[in-house]
Design a protein around this nucleic acid. Structure first.
Lengths: 349, 349
DNA sequence: TTGAAAGCGTTACCAT
DNA sequence: ATGGTAACGCTTTCAA
């Protein structure tokens, strides 16, 4: 009857009492091995497990020490969207790999103000990785005032570490490549270049803030490269979609490939878009690369598996995640980083 | 000078003092709107935000009330692996959708004992979703003793809600279909059918526990269907890999398609495997479906995008996630569920 | 509507 | 090496 955990709630106090030691000793057994003999420590640890006490209550410990062992991953948007984006997933995979190994928990947090209304959830994590600029920037202030280690990814914040990739360089290489391979019109499928929330061209639209949006940095590179080549891309051939999903890509590609004159080159800001365009081209009987050259962005695994294999700009998403996680755990060992991107010329261009 | 949050740490106490009300009133403003006038409440909320107090400290609140507003998602394995598996990702997407909307945080937790050694992290979440049986089953006990709502997915636990899919039915349909389409040998690529950790056939191997492993349930269905058709599949044609990744799939497919006589049908326990097999077949110049029929499992989006389109068993991963999340938030409104699977016959068989 | 105070489970200091 | 105890920030009861 008396074996196994009792159903009574165990605390340092009750454990100490049962084992006949003081609460300080129990606490030390779990937190400061050097404060007691190895033998006693071992005895306490194993006996308390038998009693159903597996370690200090996290809430109480956290209240007392301020430490939680949790890293917050703040995502720019709704949580669910990120599980839709291969890049975000690879990034999270990299983060998970490192944090898991370091025995710290990952708390996923949406970047919308409303989530935090009248709660101070931002107090839970001890460290933060911000993946993209949170949709509601006020959240940043609340995180800032806590003076916790913060690493930003795909954007930068004064006096915080950041991990970025060379979006401009990659997009520029992609555009130059497409410009070389074509003589006719070139179109662009971009991601949230403006805030309209629907598929539309950028004609007469206001661009989002370039410093906060990698899409706008990429567009900038495309447009500059085209201008330098003396073949400017007009804004009515630059399309903005709300999200980087297959569906949105299909929709955009269908519109674009029905315009006259039909573009000969398609610069896509994600592989999802490019793959969708490839599929639309196939069903419209447009031959790729003969009649249409397509370049993607991201270099996701699927881009290499598809046929024809996709020409794309590789960015090291997995590595971005690993680095961000390592940085946030040991901020002093690192400096901000811009990782290279690389144009992978394959079959679609 | 006095505008904006001070850098001093704000608490109910200091806020109450500054605003000239009692701590009880501040607390009530944040937790029990009915306990004070709307006007006062509003004033307190907005003034404290100005002071840099956005709500009660979660650790203290949680210590006091026992509530944390966090749902733990316990994954069977290392965290990172799940970001590799399209099914897990879709599942997480579904979970995220619902939890995000319900304003609760998701804490990702690995299912390995070592992570919890001498900590009682399991105390943090208020509710649990267990996605697959945790690798170290002792963890279950620790969760159990807390008497918190638990929903299991892809396995079941006595007296807890569960969400499962009809693995047996789906696998059975897949096998029957392949048996109809072929006359020659049939091979299987399975996921962790035994615990060897490497690619190998199941000849003379001990199968994992059927009640805990969906793979073994699927295998069971394949083998029964084959027996019923009078064309038993011998265990040296049943391969087990350690993880459902493209790489493992390629490796397995290369081995299998080099055996003599070459199989005419391939039953794959994931779309990743099936897609990898398709790719290997292509590079070995084996025509699909003419010379080789392939069926996958999962019905991931990619299976439909690939050419040839993959015949596969669809399971509603996204819906599984949504349901698990809804269940765990409102356990009393639900009963355990087995969702249907569906054979999607497409081009690869 | 308010004020006072107990107590949630820890940890860390200071003694012993 | 161990024990006693104050304090972490909060919620909630009770009395006013």
């Amino acid at each position: 009857m008396s074996t196994g955990p009792t159903n009574k709630k165990m605390t340092v106090k009750s454990v100490a009492e049962i084992l006949g030691v003081s609460t300080a000793t129990v606490s030390n057994a779990f937190n400061r091995p050097d404060q007691l003999s190895a033998g006693l420590r071992e005895r306490i640890i194993s006996e308390s497990a038998l009693l159903g006490y597996y370690g200090p209550n996290p809430a109480a410990r956290s209240l007392r020490t301020g430490a939680t062992g949790v890293v917050g991953i703040m995502l720019a948007e709704h949580l669910a969207y990120n599980f839709t984006d291969p890049c975000a997933i690879e990034f999270l995979q990299g983060v998970a790999e490192v944090l898991d190994k370091a025995q710290v928990n990952m708390l996923l947090m949406p970047g919308r103000q409303e989530f935090y209304k009248e709660k101070s959830l931002e107090a839970i994590p001890e460290r933060y990785i911000l993946y993209g600029p949170p949709r509601d920037l006020e959240i940043l202030q609340r995180i800032e005032t806590q003076r916790k280690p913060v690493v930003t990814v795909d954007f930068s914040l004064p006096s915080h570490l950041s991990v970025n990739v060379d979006n401009y360089g990659g997009a520029s290489a992609a555009a130059k490549h497409i410009l070389e391979q074509t003589t006719g019109a070139i179109a662009v499928i971009g991601i949230r270049l403006c805030d309209s929330g629907k598929l539309q061209t950028m004609e007469n639209q206001e661009l989002n803030d370039k410093s906060l949006s990698v899409s706008c940095q990429r567009l900038d590179a495309y447009l500059c490269a085209a201008n330098e080549a003396g073949r400017p891309i007009s804004l009515d051939r630059v399309w903005s979609t709300d999200e980087s999903t297959w569906m949105h890509g299909v929709e955009a590609a269908e519109r674009i490939l029905s315009t006259e004159p039909r573009p000969e080159g398609l610069l896509c800001m994600s592989d999802q878009f490019a793959l969708a365009a490839l599929s639309v081209a196939r069903s419209m009987n447009i031959r790729v690369p003969e009649e249409l050259k397509i370049v993607g962005f991201d270099g996701t695994p699927e881009s290499k598996r598809y046929h024809p294999e996709l020409t794309t700009v590789y960015q090291p998403s997995l590595e971005k995640g690993r680095l961000a996680a390592k940085m946030v755990l040991n901020p002093n060992d690192y400096e901000s980083l811009v990782l290279p991107t690389e144009l992978m010329i394959r079959e679609s261009s």
